[in-house]
Design a protein around this nucleic acid. Structure first.
Lengths: 231, 231
DNA sequence: ACCTGAACACCGTTCAAGT
DNA sequence: ACCTGAACACCGTTCAAGT
């Protein structure tokens, strides 16, 4: 009687470790296989394809979310702490950020408790059946989408140009004050702290305060939406 | 005197057309080259690498944004119409959605007018230097991030399983009403209309009403933030 | 059921070499 | 400067075949 040398869990764990260490783009069926001391085709028996492998591994991250008990706080506080937990979960494995987007549509089995809890909180907040889905999508899409953009990679630098960060910085600094008054006015706060005007990924340069602003803005917006419905 | 047979613009246009037609994952330097009647290495001379090619092509989409004149409407209306324009631009080339995330950090040259206009509107709304960057990030990240998740691909189906959509649907329908009361209660509105509970991408199944809710929620949240500051 | 082993049909990219 | 042409070092995946 032979021992099984592989399992889906072991494969996904090895995948996560590999991607955390070397990045998603250098993940290779062959590299993963040799790291696990097995033939590439053995992995295929469990996951079927490379895209399914990354999808399953990314799905675990969402499934690993620890949720606060909804009864212990207001719906506003619950949304805030849950958003923080969602962001923290992705930040723990930032190289999966690009896959999170695709994963969001799938694998409800691991995310069912999350969906159930979120819907419960939204119902308790006062949203009715007609609007709860839109509000759910607002929250889930804004948080996951925002964080996946926060963690997106730097653009590929032109061949061999290792000073592109400095060049970018210089370019931003040199923008015409008469043509772009608002940008030049905001530069001290803007440089490397705003989407499209940063040269470091959120992996090394997190946008913490902006995320806090995102969540509080959405919560305040939802409060306003509830108030409008009541009047 | 020989004619140049290639140009960066022609290459990017061909790339966009190819990705629109065949999807991002089947874009190949070799396939693009043969389609342009040229050797793959000729393209390298212009773009340097494949990742830079897709990054440049995706950058054009953001650069192509048509912006309303800020003087013609309230800041609230401008944010709403601009958000719609941002979404429309990505929906025109949905197969680039995954690249948008990476692109957001880069190529300010093509997006400078957008950044300038957005900052101007936020200043005119009453935000000051200390908070305008956070608010900018809230808006840009929420809209681009949300739409890129809306358009994310379906999860890779298990090998040869062509009924996974039906299976998914059945799985959702069969969730225990006692364990998941909120999900089962919401199923009629939830099925295929909510993140993590849908089996079609936004490419074929857009989430229009949820996006409207997102934008109005953020605008309302920003109004509340302004009011809090004034008090 | 689970894995080995070999092979197929590709890839992105580099590097001369031509004009 | 711009492109050809060949070659390098890989890929994901399929398909027998073993146990």
């Amino acid at each position: 009687v032979k021992e099984k040398s592989l399992s889906l869990e072991a494969i996904l764990a090895a995948t996560t470790a590999y991607v955390d260490r070397h990045g998603l783009e250098s993940l290779t069926m062959r590299a993963l296989a040799t790291e696990m001391g097995v033939y590439p085709t053995a992995i295929y028996w469990y996951v079927g394809s490379k895209s399914r492998l990354t999808s399953l591994a990314a799905g675990q991250l969402v499934g690993d979310l620890r949720l606060a008990r909804a009864e212990d706080e207001t719906w506003q506080d619950w949304l805030v702490s849950t958003a923080q937990a969602m962001r923290a979960a992705i930040h723990r494995h930032p190289n999966f950020a690009t896959v999170i987007g695709s994963q969001i549509s799938a694998d409800i089995s691991s995310s069912t408790p999350f969906v159930e809890a979120l819907l419960g909180v939204l119902y308790s907040a006062g949203f009715d059946d007609d609007e709860v889905v839109d509000v759910y999508n607002v929250f889930v899409g804004a948080v996951f989408g925002w964080v996946s953009i926060e963690l997106s990679n730097e653009p590929p630098s032109v061949g061999g140009d290792e000073h592109w960060q400095q060049n970018f910085k210089d370019h931003v600094d040199s923008l015409s004050a008469v043509k772009y008054p608002n940008i030049t006015r905001t530069i001290p706060h803007l440089a490397n702290r705003a989407f499209m005007v940063r040269w470091e990924s959120g992996k090394t340069n997190p946008l913490e305060s902006s995320f806090v602003a995102l969540v509080s803005t959405i919560v305040a917006g939802l409060e306003a939406r509830l108030a409008a419905h009541h009047s």
